[in-house]
Structures are given as structure tokens and as C-alpha cells.
Design a protein around this nucleic acid. Structure first.
Lengths: 74, 74
DNA sequence: GTAAAAAGTAAAATATATGTTACAATTTGA
DNA sequence: TCAAATTGTAACATATATTTTACTTTTTAC
């Protein structure tokens, strides 16, 4: 059984970055980005693999580069 | 009718970056990343919105930062 | 010029990101 | 403390990313 795409778990520091930004809760960020709070919760919990569009909007509103917010360790 | 998520079109320069890397065709890159050639074709044609995992792997194999490869114009 | 390779594309099926609703657990501030 | 705000989570529904198969068009190399 070879290495599958899903073996590369995407890690992120969205939660840390959001809190460092200050005064922004999950619901606020979700609303800015245009997803539900539940989706933002799952992203912060690293439970799945968002689309680049959502990531770009998170990057924009948290004012952090994509490469700083999302990575895979290999 | 307010602004929807889908109004933010994701742009990318994957095709340019792949060709600049040299000696890598769509099929090669697709195989490295672990998606089909058709998916890579649609991504390069900017027909849709890939997941961050696929983007991270493209970034890795093309040796370009995410922020350089993908963006939204607003 | 022509054959082979690469790229573009499309329809139908499948996997999964995201939404909706609802409730429980935890944290925060008075 | 205790109530309110925030966060975690779960089942089910929906939208869409990705696959599969297959064919056409364009590019490349001889």
C-alpha cells in the first residue's frame, strides 16, 4: 500500500494567529471569511483540509502569509 | 444579494511556475502531487479552487512559496 | 509533413469540504 | 459562584473537489 494524499496531514496555526491578532473570536473570523463558525472550528482543530480560497481569506484577515499559517510536515 | 465566497476567484501561476522549473509536464507534476492529470489541468486553467493540501504539495515540488503561487484579487 | 507526446476538455461517479441545526463543555467577567 | 460568551462536537444535508474514462486539439521532435 503506497503513500496516499491523505497521509499528508495539513497543519496550521490559525487559532494561535487569530488570538495573537486580538479581540477576534472564532465566530468573528468565520463571518469575515464567509464560512460558518463550525467550519472555522474544524479548521482550527486541524480536523480537515480547507480549500485554498478559504485559506487565502484567513490569511488576508489575520494578516499573515499563507506559508506561515499552513504547512505539511514530511 | 451580498458578496458570496465564490465571488473571490482564486488565481494562480502554477502553469508558469511548472514550465519555469523545466522538464516537468502536467502529468509529471500531477503524479508527484498525487492527483490526476485532469485535476492538475483544471487547477492550471484556474477552473476551480483546490484544497490547501494539494496546493502545499504543488508548492513543495515547484519550490515556490504558496503566497507566490496562489492569490485572490480584491 | 507526420507521428508521438502533451495539453485541453467533458460526462458521470465518488469523496470530501462546507452548511444547518442543535446541544454540551469550557472559559470569561462581573 | 454564576450567568453569558465562547468553544467543541455530532448527525445529517448539500455543494463541490477529485476521479475515471475517453476523446479531441495542440505542441514537439524527427
Amino acid at each position: 500500500m503506497s503513500l496516499e494524499l491523505k497521509d499528508f496531514t495539513v497543519k496550521n496555526k490559525v487559532k494561535v494567529a487569530r488570538i495573537e491578532k486580538g479581540g477576534l473570536n472564532q465566530g468573528d473570523l468565520a463571518k469575515l471569511v464567509g464560512v460558518t463558525r463550525q467550519t472555522m472550528n474544524l479548521i482550527e482543530a486541524q480536523k480537515y483540509n480547507p480549500t485554498i480560497r478559504v485559506c487565502l481569506l484567513i490569511s488576508k484577515y489575520l494578516e499573515r502569509p499563507l506559508d506561515e499559517l499552513f504547512w505539511i510536515d514530511d
